[in-house]
């Protein structure tokens, strides 16, 4: 049992690129769900369309990197418009079904063997990341430890991604903060509570919901692009529905409808997921494991964190729907 390894794994994930992807995606969900009450269960779809927009532009069409970024972001905006026009006038559950279906459609199409020439099939696309990595000013990785007791460590590429990523997170939070303190944000929060009241005061509810859907989708798109840049490949299965659910979990941990909620939530989410994963991996590993094989094998140990995550999400929603730091009076999750 090496607690240094466990702490290292937990902290490196919590501060590393994976948490950044979640933070960005959850910031988008926060705009959708936290502030506006839109049930977008297809955040993975916004991510995948932007990610493959970039990857296909650069790899398949051989166009410049920046054009790829542009294509990706335009893709996310268009997806929001296409999803919003039919569903935003309907009851909240319809948006949920349509977004979840769309994100699965996108994932399946991007991974289809029939479109391998364009999207690369189930292995996805690689070879678009060079312009991004060329900008990396770091020549070495980073590792912090006391003696052999590890605290946190990052590779050179991760260090670059962390720099870019947290900058993106900070900018996104700034945008959300500036918007949500404005009368525009007030309209969104009012829509979350009661659309008809807002409508009766002469506000075009549909237009506001659409703006929120696009804005949150753009954050999702940024998350998708960042995700494939930090790992160097665009793989369709990364963008499955479970991802969206995890992002919701991260958002709810930190507290919906708070600017920093998704960020704090993602950090805690990954600290726990990696820490618990590493703990049970350590506990079941080695020749004489702490937990004997007949209770838990090494394979099973990776599942404990998911079991706990499921349980945690349930308990959180039941006992603290406002998240760890939220104020219950301000959050309207219990609305319809």
């Amino acid at each position: 049992m090496d607690f240094g390894t466990i702490l290292d794994a937990a902290l490196s994930s919590a501060l590393g690129p994976q948490a950044i992807v979640f933070a960005l995606a959850a910031i988008g969900l926060n705009v959708h769900f936290g502030y506006t009450g839109l049930l977008n269960f297809g955040q993975a779809g916004f991510m995948s369309i932007a990610a493959f927009g970039l990857a296909v532009t650069v790899v398949t069409w051989d166009l410049p990197f920046l054009v790829g970024i542009l294509v990706g972001m335009v893709g996310a905006v268009l997806l929001a418009l296409v999803l919003g026009v039919p569903t935003l006038r309907l009851r909240a559950d319809y948006l949920a079904i349509v977004t979840i279906a769309t994100s699965e459609i996108l994932r399946l199409v991007f991974g289809a063997v029939e479109f391998k020439d364009t999207f690369g099939g189930s292995n996805g696309l690689t070879g678009f990341v060079r312009p991004y990595q060329n900008l990396n000013p770091y020549s070495d990785g980073f590792s912090l430890h006391i003696g052999s007791f590890g605290i946190v460590s990052f590779s050179k590429n991760d260090l670059w991604s962390i720099t870019v990523g947290w900058l993106l997170v900070a900018l996104s939070c700034l945008v959300v903060w500036a918007l949500m303190r404005s009368p525009w944000g007030r309209v969104l929060k009012s829509i979350r509570e009661d659309e008809d009241a807002v409508r009766s005061l002469g506000k075009n509810v549909f237009a506001y919901k659409m703006q929120a859907l696009v804005l949150g989708g753009v954050f999702g798109g940024i998350a998708g692009i960042f995700h494939i840049l930090k790992q160097g490949s665009a793989v369709p299965t990364d963008f499955n529905t479970t991802f969206t659910f995890y992002a919701y979990a991260a958002l709810l941990i930190g507290g919906a409808a708070r600017v920093l909620g998704p960020v704090v939530g993602s950090i805690i989410f990954w600290f726990l997921i990696s820490g618990i994963g590493s703990f049970f991996s350590e506990a079941t590993g080695g020749s004489d494991p702490v937990i004997p094989d007949w209770i838990m094998t090494q394979t099973q140990s990776s599942l404990v964190r998911l079991i706990l995550l499921g349980l945690g999400l349930m308990l959180l929603m039941i006992f603290r729907p406002q998240g760890i730091f939220g104020d219950r009076r301000e959050i309207a999750i219990d609305g319809r």
Binding site: L311, L313, M317
Partner: peptide, 15 residues
């Protein structure tokens, strides 16, 4: 609320 219960069901499904 119903939305809260829906999220509980997501957690339960994962569990």
């Amino acid at each position: 609320g119903l939305i809260a219960m829906m999220i509980v069901s997501i957690g339960f499904a994962l569990l």
